[in-house]
Design a protein around this nucleic acid. Structure first.
Length: 588
RNA sequence: GCCCCCGUAGCUCAGCGGAUAGAGCACCGGCCUCCGGAGCCGGUUGCGCAGGUUCGAGUCCUGCCGGGGGCGCCA
């Protein structure tokens, strides 16, 4: 059951091939028809023939019997396609009857490693971690839904020279007190006091440096203390993840320490490959095309002059691990835009060393910053970074206030649950609906609004459709079923779909675009594309709902057909939101 | 100085080389005794600048202007 885009592309391809083999049909949605193929114009140029003539030839060769009711050449050489309503009806009926809503799993499942979130041990999670975590989570869900093997990796910062000072501070505090402090999530204070001691106290500095040596040499007691820091921090991260509602678990953690044993091999192998150059005492690789401010070649420093390893070594090791051990086909790094150069250098070195085969894609899924109302990086009033938990708690409280303000008293609604779904959903949707690469302005009022392109709008749209079924009572099968998170139909479609009104037809076509929207989001690692689709679907449904009475439809058949449309829309909204990591309560 | 990202309506953002550049918010004027107004219809204002490629450029290329970020031993 291919969606119209796929189906039409196939048919058009065949038609274009009769004119010129391999020519791209350039199929697009059209405001003059349902779709238009623009490929004839470019092809005409290539063949040196009049564009309209080429378009006519394509149209003549096009076999869309049963799919289109009209094919016409228009303007300079566009091929406009109008779908047969009966075709749309059949497709919608099939989609509505399908638990996967017509979205076929990928023909060739890939192993995709997605690395995201990566907070630092003994450091607070702040807004900077929001985008990575939320975007990475959505990508994992989307990839998984298409049947790909998804390996989530949380590359936490759990190793390095910092840990000397952190462990000594833990010793000074006493383990019990340290654990108490860390378990309540006061990581900032812990880190800052360690830093303060380090800056102020020479003896502490000495101890810290010695502790680093002990840690690196595997001293059991030091490792035990280190593990305390890691465990407490991870427990705290888990709380934040639970609050956020993301898929990450402790099994997904592959911190810097995990790669530590592989680092010397990285150096050995790079040297054997003749790629390593010693420069100012450091072991470097100079991938071509990267220069510093003097225009000289820029090194990727694999091993520092003091013998220690930097994050470049860890990142190189992780690529080898993912390709060699996990057999990844695609690597996604959900990391902020400032790291672009570093990652590109890492990828370049891996290609040079033969660790990253040509057929394995490595992509920097970059993203911009979260800005405050002043268009500068979001900060607290005192200028500190905003704690992620504080932000999430405020979101839930604001959502609760918004619900109270709307004053809809529904006894059966779990206000706490809805406030959480709404508040967290609003934050996530605001983050996901914007083009990743752009900075965005964090604005509570806008993201929590029930109007416009927001999470709450989509959630409300979904809840209202569900309410139709509650109201349908005996007339609608399983009226009491909530349908949360499940794509199972509430109502049997049969062959009873009828799209007589323009709004019904428009809704049907919009529904059939679901699969293409998911594909587009996955291909570009752009959840915003799915957001845009869902918003469009919701507004299309509104027009339909305005114009076409459902429960008061003129006859039973029409009522049933419209209920199926409503059910399918609700399921797409709920599943689409779920693929973005956003809950869709059945009532609110 | 070099490199990367961004610059579309008053504001926040869509726009996959194609036919008159779209939403939401805000503003103005109408409408609806509505399945829980996610209301409906109409109106006002825009592609930073200059070249180029193309039958066709918001979209691709070059240069400039403006904003943000990065540029060797932190990660």
């Amino acid at each position: 059951m291919p969606d119209p885009t796929t189906l039409l592309t196939e048919r058009l391809q065949a038609a274009f091939d009769t004119v010129c083999s391999g020519a791209d049909p350039v199929l697009r949605p059209s405001d003059r028809a349902d779709f238009q193929a623009n490929g004839a114009l470019a092809l005409a140029k290539e063949l040196g023939r009049p564009p309209r003539q080429v378009a006519e030839a394509v149209a003549a060769a096009l076999d869309v019997a049963g799919i289109c009711e009209r094919v016409e050449v228009s303007g300079p050489g566009f091929v406009n396609l109008v779908l047969a309503t009966s075709f749309v009806e059949d497709q919608v009926a099939a989609m509505a009857a399908d638990v996967r809503l017509g979205v076929a799993p990928a023909a060739r499942p890939l192993t995709v490693v997605v690395t995201y979130s990566h907070p630092n041990v003994a450091k607070e999670m702040h807004v900077g971690h929001l985008r990575s975590t939320v975007i990475g989570d959505a990508l994992c869900r989307l990839l998984g839904h298409l049947g790909h093997r998804v390996v989530r990796e949380n590359h936490i910062g759990d190793w390095g020279t910092n840990f000397g000072m952190l462990i000594e501070h833990l010793v000074d505090l006493g383990e019990k007190e340290a654990m108490r402090e860390l378990s309540v999530g006061d990581l900032t204070a812990f880190y800052q006091r360690a830093r303060a001691s380090f800056d102020a106290d020479e003896a502490f500095r000495q101890r810290s440096r010695h502790r680093v040596v002990l840690l690196q040499s595997g001293d059991p007691e030091t490792l035990r203390l280190w593990q305390v820091l890691v465990d407490e921090s991870v427990a705290y991260f888990d709380e934040v993840y639970a609050k956020l509602g993301v898929l990450l678990t402790d099994d997904d953690i592959k911190g810097e320490s995990y790669y530590n044993p592989m680092l010397s091999q990285v150096v050995t192998d790079l040297r054997a490959a003749g790629l390593l150059v010693e420069d100012a005492g450091a072991q470097c690789v100079f991938p071509p095309g990267f220069t510093n401010r003097e225009g000289e070649p820029l090194p990727l420093i694999v091993q520092k002059s003091d013998g220690g390893f930097g994050y470049a070594a860890t990142d190189l090791a992780s690529v080898r691990d993912r390709v060699g051990n996990l057999h990844a086909d695609r690597l996604l790094y959900v990391v902020g835009a400032p790291q672009a150069q570093h990652l590109h250098m890492v990828f370049a070195v891996c290609r040079m060393a033969g660790w990253l085969p040509e057929e394995t894609a490595a992509e920097h899924v970059n993203f911009g910053s979260v800005l405050g109302a002043d268009h500068r990086m979001l900060r607290t009033r005192s200028g500190g970074s905003v704690k992620l938990v504080d932000l999430l708690d405020e979101a839930v409280e604001r959502a609760r206030a918004a619900i109270a303000e709307r004053g809809r008293d529904q006894g059966d609604v779990d206000v706490d649950a809805v406030a959480r779904a709404l508040g967290i959903g609003a934050v996530k949707y605001a983050d996901l609906s914007i083009d990743r690469a752009k900075d965005y302005v964090f604005d509570w009022d806008r993201m929590l609004a029930f109007e416009g392109d927001t999470g709450p709008y989509l959630q409300y749209a979904h809840a209202r459709i569900r309410s139709i079924f509650r109201r349908a009572g005996a007339g609608g099968p399983q009226a009491g079923a909530t349908g949360e998170g499940t794509a199972a139909p509430l109502i049997a479609a049969g062959d009873a779909i009828h799209l007589g009104e323009p709004e019904e037809r428009a809704l049907g076509i919009a529904l059939l675009g679901y699969g293409a929207a998911i594909s587009a989001a996955v291909e570009a690692s752009a959840p915003s594309k799915l957001c845009a689709y869902l918003y469009g679907l919701a507004t299309t449904f509104t027009s339909f709902y305005e114009r076409c009475p459902v429960l008061r439809a003129p006859d039973a058949a029409t009522r049933h057909s419209r209920l199926v449309l409503a059910d399918a829309t609700a399921r797409v909204l709920a599943e689409g939101l779920q693929l973005l990591g956003i809950e869709a309560p059945a009532h609110m």
